[in-house]
């Protein structure tokens, strides 16, 4: 037997976590291309990386990963609709990456941006988009 109320609670927390991580990653992407102030500042970089590691750990342990849950709960957390949403989110992230590559290529004609910076920003942006899409699909699925 699965505690459906608890399962729903964990799912909602996972949605919240995915949105939070997407926001954090988008901020990181903006930071990478130097839009945000603090670019190149070691203290800023360290703080952002520390927050990132803490949030990721909490997310994996207590929400998304369900590592501390029972086997039945973990199975229900990764049931068919969740796997389908993850699959669709990855496809969404792929198209987001292609779009970001196109935009970066167009921008590179006008703005002096380096390859490593663009690569990091594109990867971060596409993962953020995939996470945001996953959160949206999961939130929609919860609504009756």
């Amino acid at each position: 037997m699965i505690d459906q109320a608890k399962l729903e609670h964990v799912t909602k927390r996972r949605i919240w976590g995915a949105r939070w991580m997407a926001g954090l990653l988008l901020t990181t992407a903006l930071h990478d291309i130097g839009v945000l102030r603090g670019y190149g500042n070691d203290a800023f970089n360290f703080a952002s990386e520390a927050v990132w590691i803490i949030v990721m750990s909490l997310f994996i342990l207590f929400a998304g990963g369900g590592l501390v849950r029972t086997a039945a709960m973990r199975a229900a957390l990764y049931d068919e609709s969740t796997i389908e949403h993850a699959r669709r989110s990855l496809a969404f992230g792929f198209w987001a990456a292609l779009l970001a590559c196109g935009v970066s290529w167009a921008l590179s004609s006008y703005v002096p941006i380096g390859g490593p910076v663009v690569a990091r920003a594109v990867m971060t942006y596409s993962v953020a988009m995939a996470l945001a899409h996953f959160a949206t699909l999961e939130a929609k699925a919860l609504k009756e």
């Binding site: 799912t11 039945a72 068919e80 699925a141």
Partner: peptide, 26 residues
Amino acid sequence: QAELADRIGVSRKTINTIENGVFIPS
């Protein structure tokens, strides 16, 4: 939805998406 989900070991969310035609089950 929760009772049915419990009987087959999935989340209520999955039952909801099947009922709404959003997700086609295996």
